[in-house]
């Protein structure tokens, strides 16, 4: 490996990655602590979740992360047309994730598991809701990449990498949220 070392995207974006990770970690700590106080109630409410759906959601988001990483590779190789296709794929996978999320919320609420029905569901809707807000901002960020790719005048590799870093961050948070809400016992 003789490649030169370089920061992916804008250095300052990494401040966001670290800071926001720590903010989310603090929410997770509160959840885990609360959970240990009322283990039975949490387990009972948790059994309403549909794990296979959670796994599908996770794979959709992981794949979207892969697609945007491929997009960055194509940009570096100056294959902008192909990069555009990978951005579209990322958007598609992100929308599919969001669709699954909405369906999951609707099903849970329909079955009487709401924001206020139990402490577990309070954390569940809070964490998945906060994540969904980050995801929706992510669509704006993907829009920036598309705009940059479409116009050779505005094409900045650094901006594209910075935006992709944001999208990966949405994936990073989901990986933790998924394990903590669906798997932890």
């Amino acid at each position: 490996m003789t490649e030169t070392e370089r920061v992916p995207g804008e250095g300052d974006m990494w401040f966001f990655v670290v800071f926001e990770s720590l903010v989310f970690t603090s929410y997770f700590c509160v959840y885990l602590y609360d959970r240990a106080q009322h283990e039975h109630a949490f387990l009972k409410a948790q059994s309403a979740l549909n794990l296979p759906l959670g796994i599908v959601e996770t794979i959709l988001l992981l794949t979207s992360s892969w697609a945007i990483a491929r997009c960055v590779q194509e940009v570096r190789a100056a294959r902008y047309r192909s990069a555009q296709r990978f951005v579209l794929a990322t958007v598609g996978l992100g929308v599919a994730f969001f669709g699954c999320k909405l369906a999951e919320w609707v099903r849970l609420i329909g079955d009487g598991h709401t924001f206020t029905s139990s402490e577990f569901m309070q954390h569940f809707f809070f964490l998945t809701g906060m994540h969904a807000i980050h995801l929706l901002i992510g669509f704006v960020v993907l829009g920036v990449i598309r705009y940059q790719l479409a116009d050779p005048q505005h094409r900045s590799h650094q901006t594209i990498e910075t935006c992709s870093t944001y999208w990966h961050t949405v994936d990073l948070f989901w990986v933790l949220i998924f394990a903590l809400l669906y798997i932890v016992r």
Binding site: E10, D12, M13, F15, F16, F19, E20, V23, F126, M130, I133, H134, I137
Partner: peptide, 18 residues
Amino acid sequence: FPRWFGYLNLCNALTEVV
């Protein structure tokens, strides 16, 4: 301003939702 402060504004905005 340094750009990281721009991103800190986003973090702050997100906690306003909480």
